[in-house]
């Protein structure tokens, strides 16, 4: 029963996850291809950065003090900042498929007209999200690792793999929150709006915090403070804080989704 449902749900996720991963890979590969040029022009880049207003740097997530010409800084600015957007698209689509789309179209009623429990149905949806986010995370770092040797850039596999792990857990947190909101609202539109709104609000907060030091305490309310791939890649500093926070968010949100879904009136 579970295997059949999992197989079907993975099959239904193929196109979405495939296209998003291909986009991430292509984008990562393209950015990795530009990296040697960036490194060759490091002095000029530094001069440019020095004359940019700090507000502008903050708006583009470049306030962290790491260099654009280091692999980690470069990855964090050009790809790490891009992942939450792509991850959220995938997470919202996957999470609301079970909680909104299948309810609207009547597929949920067909599945639940069998001895399939809602708990099992939701658990399968969660497993699919975990797998999908893993594939997206591989796509996020994969472009760099594939193209690095081709363009002569030294991207170390282990730090990038750790950054991928960070990315995966971050994606799971976004997916879990989207699942919980979806279970509560039974609406893809509302869920998409809320999750995207939360991410944008957190990004704005992180920009404001970078500009205004007195508001630094707010930094830790944003997911961007915990998603620090630059430190992992450049300094080999594996900080458990980020993955632990994202893991806790994911765990509680998925648990909440399960509890809500078990008792949710599917008023489609």
């Amino acid at each position: 029963m579970t295997r059949s449902l999992l197989r079907l749900e993975l099959r239904r996720s193929r196109a979405l996850v495939g296209w998003l991963t291909a986009m991430l890979l292509l984008y990562g590969a393209t950015m990795a291809a530009f990296y040697p040029s960036m490194r060759e022009n490091a002095a000029m880049m530094q001069q440019i950065l020095e004359i940019w207003p700090k507000e502008m740097l903050a708006a583009f997530g470049m306030e962290g003090g790491f260099g654009l010409t280091d692999p980690g800084g470069y990855f964090a600015i050009y790809v790490g900042e891009f992942f939450p957007v792509v991850g959220a698209i995938g997470a919202i689509f996957l999470a609301t498929r079970t909680t909104a789309v299948d309810v609207d179209r009547g597929w949920a009623a067909i599945s639940l007209a069998t001895p399939l429990s809602r708990t099992r149905q939701m658990l399968v949806a969660i497993v699919v999200q975990v797998i999908a986010m893993g594939i997206l995370a591989i796509g996020t770092v994969g472009g760099f690792l594939l193209v690095g040797p081709v363009v002569g850039a030294r991207f170390e596999a282990v730090p990038f793999a750790l950054a991928g792990l960070d990315t995966w857990v971050y994606g799971c947190a976004i997916a879990a929150v989207a699942t919980l909101v979806g279970a509560l609202t039974l609406s893809r539109g509302l869920t998409g709006g809320l999750v995207a709104g939360i991410l944008i609000a957190m990004y704005l907060v992180s920009v404001i915090v970078a500009i205004e030091p007195s508001l630094d305490w707010m930094r830790y309310l944003t997911s961007f403070a915990w998603f620090d791939t630059a430190a992992v890649i450049d300094e080999g500093r594996v900080e458990a804080g980020g993955p632990v926070v994202f893991g806790l968010v994911a765990g509680f949100a998925w648990l909440g989704s399960l509890l809500v879904w078990r008792r949710r009136d599917l008023l489609a």
């Binding site: 239904r12 299948d102 609207d104 179209r105 009547g106 597929w107 009623a109 067909i110 007209a113």
Partner: peptide
């Protein structure tokens, strides 16, 4: 149980 105009995939 089968609903009216079921939403098969």
């Amino acid at each position: 149980s089968v609903g009216s105009d079921p939403g098969y995939l």
